[in-house]
């Protein structure tokens, strides 16, 4: 039980670290969003699960509610942020044809939006 809990904690922290590295290394906001929101939330859920296994006094309901809420709100937040980023004309790399361009009104990217 304890070994499993510690393994889950370590895996969760590892995923969070990977998400942060992806946040720095990936080239545009959309790809960074994939790394941060998804891997980050999976890491957090794993950590909370690990805590539930390790800490006998922790209430199961609180931990499970946290995970449930993270999983429920993650896609909604990601969709809102992605759509908003698209509409605001954030830099998008490597996408050749963009079928969304006919559907949504995309703002012009600022010339100062330099690659970084």
């Amino acid at each position: 039980m304890i070994v499993l809990g510690v393994a889950m904690l370590a895996l969760g922290v590892g995923f969070l670290l990977v998400a942060a590295i992806g946040l720095v290394r990936l080239p545009d906001p959309f790809q960074r969003m994939h790394s941060a929101t998804k891997a980050g939330t999976l890491g957090t859920s794993l950590i909370v699960l690990g805590v539930l296994l390790l800490d006998q006094t922790a209430r199961l309901s609180t931990g499970l509610l946290t995970i449930l809420f993270l999983l429920l709100t993650l896609p909604i937040g990601a969709q809102l942020l992605g759509r908003a980023a698209y509409l605001s004309g954030a830099r998008m790399e490597g996408v050749d044809d963009d079928p969304l361009a006919d559907v949504l009104d995309r703002a012009e990217a600022k010339p100062t939006d330099r690659p970084d």
Partner: peptide, 13 residues
Amino acid sequence: YFTSLTPGSTCLH
């Protein structure tokens, strides 16, 4: 929702 939830894909619109 499910397509957005999996890492590596996000529903934009």
